[in-house]
Design a protein around this nucleic acid. Structure first.
Length: 999
DNA sequence: GTCCGACCGTA
DNA sequence: TTACGGTCGGACG
């Protein structure tokens, strides 16, 4: 090494943390391995190596080394036991990345330096002084103030994030003292992050003033008695020893024994294939491309190398010795092929000052975005391909976009694409660390006025045939994370355009995982809640009601404001919400139960199911006839014509005009005419109430099912495509709408006829597979009830067993009424039983119902324990959990209103049971398509519907025998390997040409 | 046109 | 006694 050489010393540990903070949190490889910091590190390093000449450094290095901390056990710990004592463990997802980053450094063909017992800063100091002595120039790539003491005329620092060189004047400007006095300054001010004590009450300003006056720390301490301010004089005298200790702690050593001599840190040429092999293994597609271009390699010809990953305590990064393993909540750790993660409790303890925890990060994000204004004037409309390409390139560069589509319909199966918007977050120098910009790309807007053909295309739009391939490439690019709100809609829409979106997040689903039970998860409420911003309402753009226009007729400028804002809001919500998943230990729920279900449901919706319109039409006629006959008879009995469908009019007839007794009132004071009231009257021998009940049944079936379903048959596919909502129940169940296929009648013979209209296509069968008693099995599992567990293990009738336990009646020859009561009690337990509710259900006295409950708890004390502890948890923490760690919040559980409180308690008891069952079938659904594919049955066995504990498939005739055992096995083993239940799950499956016979 | 309550279909 | 969505009537504007 000689004069004219230039040594770059990269502060690797500092780089890691900067990369981690600067990038979107939780960037992961497709197998779940977090690689965000690795990605940031590689990008920064590549930039440094290729662009050093163009940056403010202005030179190209001849020598370069990347320096890391070895561990936190250094000589400083011997000097001062509390050194860095209040630093917390690094974020969980950073742990496996420490090792990867060292491997990355070697892949870049760079020396990777660390020495036991010393910090990176000491190694840097030693090399810097050695190089300086040999006449070389030094650039320390870091912005850490601890390194500023090293700055001289020949040694500079370089802040790569801000592209700013730091020399002697910069240190003076920032700290008020020249670099050589930085040690004394830091000794006085201390450092809360590293737990360097310093002198209490002395900050950088005071320290600089004192140093200017007294020259250095020793002189100051000698002449401390001269200080005029009494308080300051006293603390300095009292803390003189602390200051001297602190000086030893902050002073960097320049005598670290080094394996590699400074002259050997020669910057070698890049080994292109070696680097590309590593980058490919990390799935950094855009950097791979840039590196391949730069070294003229064919990236396609190079295989990804095997990269060993150290996941847990074996990975050594700074301060791992203080890392505690995360506590396990319930169940065993989730292990599905790759990563190990653990559903765990929130770490409620306050983070020490200056440390960086996932919670701190989430909180800082929340604070930053709560008041970041929206500037609509910055939204841009893209009207040419070149600009679109530029934005897509930027998206690849930043790796994450907010995304939204604009269409002609709320129904994703019918909607046509009108345009799309995207938002990009640049890591700009804004207070939030990000700068978000957004665009709208109109594709199918029409002119409102219209020519003879009824409205032509608006001008200056990119042609669909040009835009679609680009959009497809972007949405299918694994290296770009697409963030959307309610992505299932956009996913399904785009799938119909031949695009299968990959690598995505859904802010609605993240909110649902984090805050189920605390409100809606739509974009507008989330925006108001987290961004303090009310987005432009759809109806303000497209109108509402009769004056509503289709989005393709909306003026493009107005559309840009609306659409770009949606992408902007979505990306901001992601910035706020995504870090909370890690902070609140809900990443596993989101990644295993929520996000992967989205494409599964989209595929089910896209497939739809055939309904036979002729059957429905025939049924409709029969129902109309039956209802008409009953109407005549009802008018006869009532002595007048009235609207039977009006509970108000009916109540007046029954309890007013006819003066019947036994009526009850609804909460609004109206006479109740519910089925149970009418049944009671019918049981007393009255004809009219019976006929009304029958009439209601027929008209219900007709209006809700036989008349409504044909309207949902898709004009092209000729099938019915329901829409599943992933985020509208509190417990984790799905809901189905337009049409709701989760409430197709089954209990009565009349109702079941509707199921015969749900048919398989010719050459196929429908298979219905349903869990037997899944909620009671979950209850037996969570409450650990020996009798229930045994009964399920033995496969005996659970309600009969309950009755036998409670009433001492043998199962053999048990009267059906006894079993019926036990069954009602079992359901009552699941629903968070009350004597009032059970009495209502069984039409018995409340005291008798109370006796039943008492007896039940005597026979099954574990159930009462479970119910009590669940209520207690809900009260203490405000939420309860399912067996897979899904959290359901009950913010009103401590209401002062007793009926509100009681309601919340019952719901809190029910939620873990209903929600765990929902988690189980979700897992089955997620595993189903891969399991069928493995058996060679892809698209030959197609999952169509889910009805809470039942899955319906459409299967080619010859595959039925092969498919059935696979379906049953996936469902029965759905909890494995994450969790083995104490009771077996049982699934019944049947095949037939219609849903009624298959069920 | 829009909202809400009553009612009833499912698990 | 839990969790949903759809239809209707009726009141509001």
């Amino acid at each position: 090494m000689k004069k004219g050489d230039h040594l770059f010393l990269v502060d690797g540990s500092g780089f890691i943390f900067r990369a981690f903070h600067a990038l979107p949190p939780l960037t992961r490889k497709s197998d779940g391995l977090p690689v965000g910091a690795v990605s940031g590190f590689c990008n920064m390093l590549w930039k440094l190596l290729t662009e050093a000449r163009d940056t403010s450094v202005g030179v190209t290095p001849t020598h370069l080394a990347v320096i890391f901390d070895y561990s936190s056990k250094t000589f400083r710990k011997d000097l001062y036991d509390a050194y860095k004592a209040n630093r917390s463990a690094p974020p969980e997802e950073l742990i496996p990345q420490f090792g990867l980053i060292r491997q990355a450094t070697r892949a870049f063909n760079l020396p990777c330096i660390e020495t036991e017992g010393f910090e990176a800063d000491d190694i840097i100091a030693t090399y810097a002084r050695q190089a300086e002595a040999l006449g070389a120039d030094v650039t320390i790539v870091s912005s850490d103030k601890d390194l500023m003491q090293l700055v001289t005329d020949n040694v500079h620092m370089y802040d790569s994030m801000k592209d700013k060189q730091i020399g002697i004047p910069d240190v003076i400007e920032k700290w008020g003292v020249p670099p050589e006095k930085m040690i004394d300054l830091q000794a006085m001010t201390g450092d809360s992050v590293d737990n360097v004590p310093g002198i209490p009450g002395i900050g950088p300003k005071t320290a600089a003033t004192l140093l200017a006056e007294y020259g250095d720390l020793d002189t100051l301490l000698e002449r401390a008695t001269e200080i005029k301010q009494e308080k300051r004089r006293q603390t300095i005298i009292e803390n003189a020893d602390k200051a001297r200790l602190s000086r030893e702690l902050v002073k960097l050593r320049t005598d670290v024994p080094l394996e590699l001599a400074v002259a050997d840190l020669i910057l070698e040429a890049q080994d292109g294939p070696k680097l590309i092999g590593f980058l490919k293994a990390m799935q950094f597609t855009s950097l791979t491309r840039r590196v391949a271009e730069a070294c003229e390699c064919d990236a396609g010809a190079i295989d990804a190398v095997d990269v060993p990953v150290e996941w847990g305590a074996n990975a050594h990064g700074p301060d791992l010795d203080v890392a505690e393993p995360a506590p396990v909540a319930g169940g065993t750790p989730e292990v599905v092929g790759d990563a190990v993660s653990v559903p765990a409790k929130v770490n409620g303890s306050a983070a020490p000052e200056g440390s960086f925890t996932p919670s701190d990060f989430a909180k800082s994000r929340a604070d930053a975005f709560a008041s970041l204004p929206f500037d609509h004037s910055r939204y841009v409309t893209i009207r040419d391909v070149a600009t679109l390409d530029k934005w897509i390139a930027d998206a690849r560069e930043t790796g994450v976009i907010g995304f939204d589509t604009e269409t002609t319909s709320l129904d994703a199966m019918q909607a046509e694409l009108v345009g799309f918007s995207m938002a990009i977050a640049d890591n700009a120098k804004s207070p939030t660390g990000v700068n978000i910009r957004a665009v709208y790309v109109p594709l199918g807007h029409k002119t409102g006025v219209g020519d003879l053909l009824g409205g032509g295309m608006a001008e200056n739009q990119i042609a669909m045939r040009d835009a679609l391939p680009r959009l497809k490439a972007l949405l299918e690019d694994q290296s770009v994370l697409k963030v959307a709100q309610n992505l299932k809609y956009d996913y399904l829409l785009m799938k119909r355009y031949g695009v299968e979106t990959k690598n995505f997040d859904d802010t609605m689903l993240i909110s649902y995982v984090l805050d189920a039970g605390t409100g809606a998860h739509g974009m507008d409420p989330l925006s108001e809640k987290f961004l303090n911003h009310k987005p432009i309402a759809y109806k303000d753009v497209a109108g509402s009601g009769k004056s509503n226009i289709s989005f393709d007729l909306v003026d493009i400028d107005r559309a840009t404001h609306y659409a770009a804002e949606d992408a902007d809001v979505t990306l901001r919500l992601w910035m706020v919400l995504k870090p909370r998943l890690a902070a609140e230990k809900l990443t596993t729920v989101y990644e295993r139960l929520e996000r992967p279900l989205l494409p599964v449901l989209a595929h089910m919706e896209e497939r739809g199911i055939t309904v036979d319109r002729q059957i429905l039409s025939r049924l409709s006629g029969e129902l109309a006839q039956g209802a008409a006959r009953l109407e005549d008879e009802i008018y006869q009995l009532a002595g007048e014509r009235f609207n039977i469908g009006s509970p108000k009019q009916l109540g007046d007839i029954l309890f007013g005009k006819m003066g019947l007794a036994g009526g009850s009132k609804t909460k609004t004071g109206q006479w109740s005419t519910s089925a149970s009231v009418l049944e009671d009257l019918a049981a007393a021998g009255l004809e009219l109430p019976r006929k009304i009940v029958d009439w209601r049944q027929l008209t219900k079936l007709k209006s809700t099912y036989t008349d409504a379903l044909p309207g949902y048959v898709h004009p092209q596919t000729k099938r019915v495509h329901t829409s599943y909502s992933l985020a509208s129940t509190t417990t984790g169940r799905l809901s189905s709408s337009e049409p709701n296929l989760q409430n197709i009648p089954v209990r009565t013979a009349e109702g079941r006829k509707i199921r015969t209209a749900f048919i398989s296509t010719p050459g196929h069968k429908l298979i219905s597979a349903d869990y037997s008693q899944i909620e009671l099995r979950v209850l037996a599992h969570v409450a650990e009830i020996p009798q229930l567990t045994q009964a399920f293990a033995d496969g005996i009738d659970i309600h009969a067993m309950t009755a036998s336990e409670m009433f001492g009646v043998p199962v053999e020859g048990m009267p059906s009424e006894v079993r019926r009561r036990a069954k009602a009690i079992n359901f009552g337990i699941i629903y968070g039983i009350s004597a009032f509710g059970l009495a209502n259900q069984l039409s018995i006295e409340r005291s008798e119902a109370g006796d039943y409950i008492k007896r039940y708890f005597e026979r099954f004390p574990g159930i009462r324990d479970y119910m009590d502890s669940t209520k207690q948890q809900a009260r203490d923490k405000g939420y309860v959990e399912t067996i897979f760690g899904r959290r359901i919040n009950y913010p009103e559980i401590r209401s002062s209103n007793p009926s509100v409180r009681a309601f919340n308690e019952r719901a809190a008891i029910n939620a873990p049971i209903q929600g765990s069952a929902a988690d189980v079938i979700r897992r089955a659904m997620i595993k189903m398509e891969p399991a069928l594919a493995e058996a060679g049955l892809s698209e030959r066995v197609r999952m169509l519907l889910q009805v809470h504990d039942e899955l319906i498939f459409e299967v080619e005739d010859e595959d039925v025998d092969k498919a059935m055992p696979i379906i049953v096995s996936v469902m029965e083993n759905a909890t494995m390997p994450a969790l083995e239940m104490r009771v077996p799950l049982k699934v019944d499956a049947r095949a037939a040409t219609n849903w009624d016979e298959a069920h």
